[in-house]
Write a protein that binds this DNA or RNA. Structure first.
Lengths: 144, 144
DNA sequence: ATTATTTATGAGTATATACACCTATTTGCC
DNA sequence: GGCAAATAGGTGTATATACTCATAAATAAT
């Protein structure tokens, strides 16, 4: 009876599917900036709370700590971020946006904004507002 | 004015975030079956249209063709699927579910169903029905 | 029939994801 | 002060993702 029993309705599959499609679209739009969508997000979050310890960043991004560590590597390689040992707590590694990183983020912003507006426009803003809340619910539903 | 201009509202970031969280939850639930969520989805789709050429499968899954090729590897390694050269068209590689793969899928089904019902229950079925349509819209919005 | 084009696919490379395990440092308890 | 527990973080391994380029076979053009 419940059509949710059909694996085609799998919440995981459908979320991943949409994430794949949207990521490809954003990656394409961000190409001129040299940043991937994930990298843009990391820099954007970082710009608001730099410097931040790895664990803190990973919580904000809802990203596994070790995943974040790997994702930081290419950014360090490009000199967009830097990692410094914590002053108080020497275990901590504080991630901070470099000047170059700030510029890269600023340069990527118009490209991101263009694709964001395009996608929201296609979805309609009302639907996206709804989706944003729904996706938040999904994160919560996965975590409790 | 439009709060969508805030990178925190990035459609890509929010979709990926939710996909990460949900995937972890589904992977954990599917652990006893030995299948990852992605693998379960591939087997599930395959069970309905076996055998199918790689390109066709990738279209159904909304997954890049080369991504699918890589994702098939561990499944071939476990003997859950097999790949045969096409009869009519020798360029084609036809993917088919093996008997072992069918059994693995069948064994995983209750675990998937349990986590699926749990998640849909938490989201509420009405919201999930809505989300399913919205996610489909997102795929379309990314593709046109 | 031969050649050009299109189509189906794999391989190289790079990023993204995360579990299990390990190390170093700090903190709490005695 | 000294040691156990908790905390911050990285590495090994494996899967997931997709772009670019290369290959082979089928089809279209001549």
């Amino acid at each position: 009876m419940k059509h949710f029993s059909d694996p085609a309705s799998c919440a995981c599959f459908n979320l991943r599917k949409a994430a794949r499609a949207i990521t490809q679209h954003y990656d394409e739009a961000l190409k001129p900036s040299g940043l991937r969508a994930t990298q843009f997000s990391i820099l954007a979050v970082l710009s608001k709370l730099t410097p931040a310890p790895v664990a803190h960043l990973s919580q904000v991004l809802v990203m596994d700590r070790t995943t974040l560590t790997r994702n930081l590597k290419p950014l360090v390689g490009q000199g967009l971020i830097a990692i410094q040992p914590g002053e108080e707590d020497r275990r901590r590694r504080c991630v901070l946006l470099t000047v170059k990183g700030g510029k890269a983020l600023k340069a990527a912003l118009p490209h991101w904004q263009a694709v964001q507006e395009q996608v929201i426009g296609r979805l309609t803003p009302a639907r996206w507002r709804r989706m944003e809340k729904d996706l938040e619910h999904a994160v919560t539903a996965a975590g409790e």
